[in-house]
Design a protein around this nucleic acid. Structure first.
Lengths: 332, 332
DNA sequence: TTGTAAGCGTTATCAC
DNA sequence: GTGATAACGCTTACAA
């Protein structure tokens, strides 16, 4: 056994202050106690550098003030920002963040969930790719961007509305022949509604719309090949593109520029996410902006809400359009 | 008090298996036990969905298999990558990651340290900006990129060597008039050695070198003004620039290009960090690459090393040069 | 208002 | 090899 920790305990504080153990506990729990006692205890605690042991406390109270955050990656700007915001929200309420990075691998995700369950976290906020994870029923769980069932509250951006907004915006900016390209895991998550929204928006605006979608395994080259196939005599057939992520938008734009297609003069491009260039601190492209801070705040709110009997199954947060130099419009 | 958790305990497992409590404990700690007993216990545990409660365990053993990671941000690509790698290293050893994001604010940093100390973490890995943090002496602590004292092990890239390497590389690539620009917090951390290394490297190569350094409060515009001041008749005075971070390199390049200075034809630029563009998956610029995965691995190794009596005060990891299109050299 | 003591889930030391 | 039992540091009735 490890050398007995020499950190002071409540007992030490009680002895130092010359009061009973229970009194010390009360002081640290804000339970009224004679003023002179309180002062003696506080002095003693400061002198000894005493800190409550939340493990021991949790053993009694079944609350640890710790929330697990499970993310596939944090190197992707969207996930990184989301994780940071969640952690800040939690810290603001004096909750700790237990972080697990899963690479979106089922086994790892499951293992993480087991690990954090062992640590008796008070809840889990997760962005996962596998609907068949096994989680303790009575462990509060909030899913981000993935709606699994009415029993698991999900917080997401209004992906469908964002798609419509993209179509409306491109229409307003004068586009007449639209293209939607989608790239990414074919999970049945909320983000998949972006395309449906866009198609609806195009229909409402009376605009023709082509969709080209590839899944992760296909790599991204099919999209670039598709683009090439639609360049005739140096002119691109479409005058507006909606990409399901900013990352894809950037790839598409780099490719088109290499083919001497100008953006936004020849074709306007809108992405989804609203990411900022980490170095230049400006948008990477015109985009449908996800309210990351609100996503974080809302997820934390729901997770920690007192009354867990009636939680919204799906909370959709409003998105907005932000020009970013890849559409014909002055930037705000 | 919260509704008593209905999670199964060792006692439940013991009852279900018809063995004594201690026997169950032994099974879960790998202590030899009769085969038939072990099987009965394992079956019972599976049936009940039992998981060891690490809080209760920690109370006895003073080990929690949890490490706190303290970072100023995780939205910056370098910090994000570092955090992710550390978390993976820890997970590989069955350690949990407790994440604290501090915005590099002293009060927040101190508060985080107190929070994690309450949680009785087994150690802290931190990248902080304030040398005067108060940390429990006997709580294992590893600092990244900041050398505070011989008592606190620090893991960092070979920043000095990287500076020399940058000078050598620019020299090899034909530069004759070099510039070093530095931007960022004026903390007395390891990264500040980059400039010293570069200047030494220039001297060794017999090349003239100008240094222009601004601190965070100054904003970045002084650097851009400095650049402008050294453009005469559309020609830039320097033919090689070393920036103390990739982020700065990107800003410098955007500015120079807006002034019609070509990179790498007119001036070659080397940054520091070796970051990849998160969307295009290619280097953002030619750069001195920090071995992030090794930094993480080493920090974890040192933190968890058994014999803590003799730890290296400063571990410098080797950096390397990687072409990234902003120097005149084919990219590997 | 203050002190006492039981118990949270686990480990470890014992007799058996 | 197995099974009671006393801690670990804390909270919380309950008694003083």
């Amino acid at each position: 056994m490890r050398k007995k920790s020499n950190a002071p305990t409540m007992k030490d504080v009680a002895q130092e202050a010359g009061v009973a153990l229970g009194t010390v506990s009360k002081v640290f729990n804000g339970i009224p106690v004679g003023k002179s006692y309180r002062l003696r205890v506080e002095d003693a605690a400061k002198k000894l550098g005493y800190q409550v042991n939340t493990y021991a406390r949790g053993l009694k109270t079944n609350r640890t003030f710790t929330v697990a955050v499970i993310m596939p990656f944090i190197t992707h700007p969207f996930f990184g920002e989301l994780t940071e915001q969640i952690s800040r929200c939690l810290a603001a309420r004096d909750y700790r963040t237990m972080l697990a990075v899963t690479t979106s691998d089922l086994a790892v995700e499951q293992h993480c969930i087991e690990m954090v369950q062992q640590n008796k976290v008070d809840g889990i906020i997760a962005l996962t790719y596998h609907p068949d994870l096994i989680v303790d029923d009575d462990l509060p769980f909030v899913s981000i961007d993935r709606f699994y069932s009415a029993a698991i509250p999900c917080v997401a951006s209004d992906n469908y509305g964002g798609g419509v907004l993209a179509a409306d915006t491109l229409s307003r900016l004068g586009c007449r022949n639209l293209l939607f390209v989608r790239h990414g895991a074919a999970v049945a998550g909320e983000p998949d509604k972006r395309g449906a929204g866009f198609e609806t928006g195009c229909r409402q605006n009376g605009l023709p719309c082509t969709s080209f979608q590839v899944n992760d395994e296909d790599g991204k080259s099919p999209i670039l090949e598709f683009l090439d196939a639609h360049i005739r005599d140096g002119r691109f057939e479409y005058d507006g593109i909606f990409c399901n992520t900013d990352a894809l938008a950037v790839q598409v734009m780099v490719h088109l520029r290499s083919r001497r297609i100008r953006i936004p003069e020849d074709v306007q491009v809108i992405g989804f996410d609203g990411l900022m260039d980490p170095f230049l601190n400006k948008p990477v492209c015109s985009s449908i902006v996800q309210p990351i801070a609100q996503l974080a705040e809302t997820a934390v709110d729901i997770l920690l809400s007192q009354d867990r009997s009636r939680l919204p199954a799906l909370t959709c947060l409003p998105v907005s359009f932000r020009p970013g130099g890849t559409t014909r419009e002055e930037m705000s």
